[in-house]
Design a protein around this nucleic acid. Structure first.
Lengths: 348, 348
DNA sequence: TCGCCGTGTCGAACCGGTTCGGGAAGCTAG
DNA sequence: CTAGCTTCCCGAACCGGTTCGACACGGCGA
């Protein structure tokens, strides 16, 4: 059933039907009622393709995320869900595009074939060819995360530097002197993933300020890698008493590694990091962490993108979130250091 | 840049450009080369909207999943990823639609506005109005899961009955006599979610066969609910020595509840269930479980849907998967029952 | 030399909407 | 009575592709 059929049955022209439905020109009450009746009877809905062709907008947003090769983390999941829901509020659909890079066929289709009105980029890198490409085309997009030079572009993000710094200070305040950083996989760090880099920067900076002895590690996005990572940490420096992590997926493995090494959390060893609340609450003891507000990020990204679409030429906006650390149960005062006995006993 | 522009620059008609690019009619080598050259120079890509309008196909698949109100589980995430990747292989994009029911605006748009060529339904219910609706319209779709009467429809699914039965038999073989079932949230059970119902059926059936004493529980999709659920289990019957669960998201909470009740897994208490491998490996001790092959399911669903799209009128097909139980470390022989002392000591 | 056939290209119609300019009808003011 | 203004609707063009029928052209056999 197309608009012509409706017009015929209502005894009016196609354009009148169009105006009656869109309200872009006044239509008399009588004809509007007649048209509405036919529409309701036939359950007519205009074709999205035809409408998209005619007015040059698809009412669809693209969500560009890395291919599944890299395991998805819980944060990404929450994120996708919140983007889809927020987009629905604005009557946008969401098209998924698994793209690592610029030259991906999927990415090219999204842009070249004009399948979407705007795009949201996940898993941003400091030097991001996708972001550069979109910027060069002046294609409406919002990044989740900041590139190395975010000025003049639209983004929402987490202040990873500040968050990890807060974690380090938290541990230092508790008396920890030798701590480790468990980062995302090396492959992602090398690829320039923002969170991995800025997180590492924040760690290094805060540790230097507090004069801590530190080591940093990359760790695969799975439990087994987390376990071996802890083994390496304790092998490299048995006097380590705490760690900070960005790696949600490895968290269970980190805990397992500590348990198998006979380190009790939080008595012998403190763990903290930047992790979504629902995952922080999954482990025992529950993780003291800066809770990643994935759902907020998704919603904000959509808000910004819609604003950009509605007001072409508007000055760039952004949101930098710095959620506070939620104190749970995985950190505690540094006790007697088991091996070297450097520090004095701080627990009476 | 549209096809007319290409035609003008190549000095041919629009139809010739179309045929040169699609290959649906022969075009002389000379003109094809000329056209290709112009296309390459301008980086021309045909508009998806126009193409969709002209040939009545959008090259897009709809993925209908429940709104985020229900927390997403890890399984759903893997699933979404594998669907998107599999669809990309066939040159389909994936449009996300958060829909609980038939009457959702989002669902209506998907179908009524003909935004997608076919749909994949997640989180199927035994009586599913979305599935009924699609069937009534003869709209190409594949369900993840079976409704109460799956005959004549296209679906892929897990044999939840058999999987949970296998878990029960596994525990019974180890000598457990009093076990509990931890299901998905009551709200989902009442709504008729397939996995919750068939899982429960399998549990009840196998328990009856083995003459076990059982209790069944519904449990929220989060760690806190898992913890209180274990408290209820041990309160209702302290002699319980094992549990079977379908509830991935509660798993961490279940473990925590057991630990706080002083039950050591697997010495005092065995845990098993139907859970994706990557989550089963997250907990310590790692969960002995029937691994949910979410990625396989996603791929198979896309394969089936594409087949259905390519061969309209083809007889319905389906895939019922029954992954084996992966023995990890969360189950062991039933020991002395701590409270009542009913059974003889089975460990020499 | 003429008719026939195959090859390569073109023009026009079509997909299903939106939008613009204009015209008919009805009403008011001069 | 008519000029002028609203109000309401129509026809036509357009968005950017695809596809069908037709036609020009060259080579072939009769």
């Amino acid at each position: 059933m197309n608009i012509g059929e409706i017009a015929r049955r209502a005894g009016v022209s196609r354009s009148t039907v169009s105006y009656a439905l869109s309200g872009k020109r006044p239509v008399s009450d009588d004809t509007r009622r007649k048209i509405q009746q036919v529409v309701d009877e036939l359950g007519y809905q205009p074709s999205a393709s035809a409408r998209a062709l005619a007015n040059g907008r698809t009412s669809t947003l693209g969500l560009v995320f890395p291919p599944a090769g890299n395991h998805y983390t819980g944060m990404q999941l929450d994120f996708i869900g919140s983007v889809v829901e927020a987009a629905a509020v604005y009557d946008y659909d969401v098209l998924l595009s698994p793209s690592g890079v610029d030259s991906d066929r999927s990415f090219q289709r999204l842009l070249g074939e004009r399948r979407v009105d705007g795009a949201i980029l996940m898993e941003i890198r400091l030097e991001d060819d996708r972001a550069d490409h979109l910027a060069a085309l002046d294609f409406p997009s919002v990044a989740i995360g900041r590139t190395a030079r975010p000025e003049g572009s639209w983004w929402v993000g987490l202040d990873h530097i500040a968050l990890v710094e807060a974690c380090v200070h938290h541990l230092a305040d508790l008396g920890h002197r030798r701590i480790a950083f468990v980062n995302r996989p090396e492959q992602l760090l090398r690829a320039g993933y923002e969170s991995a880099h800025r997180g590492l920067d924040g760690f290094t900076k805060a540790a230097a300020e507090r004069g801590l002895t530190v080591r940093t590690y990359c760790c695969g996005d799975d439990a087994a890698s987390g376990q071996t990572c802890v083994e390496r940490i304790l092998h490299d420096d048995p006097a380590t008493t705490g760690l900070v992590t960005l790696n949600e997926a490895a968290l269970g493995g980190l805990y397992r590694g500590l348990a198998q090494a006979g380190r009790h959390v939080p008595r012998d060893f403190s763990v903290t990091g930047v992790v979504a609340a629902r995952w922080a609450e999954t482990v025992t003891p529950q993780l003291t962490a800066a809770d990643v507000p994935a759902a907020d990020l998704g919603r904000l990204a959509v808000d910004l993108l819609v604003e950009r679409l509605d007001h072409p030429g508007a000055p760039p906006r952004n949101h930098l979130l710095t959620p506070p650390i939620s104190l749970r149960a995985s950190t505690g005062p540094a006790g007697v250091t088991p091996a070297v006995g450097t520090g004095a006993d701080t627990t009476p």
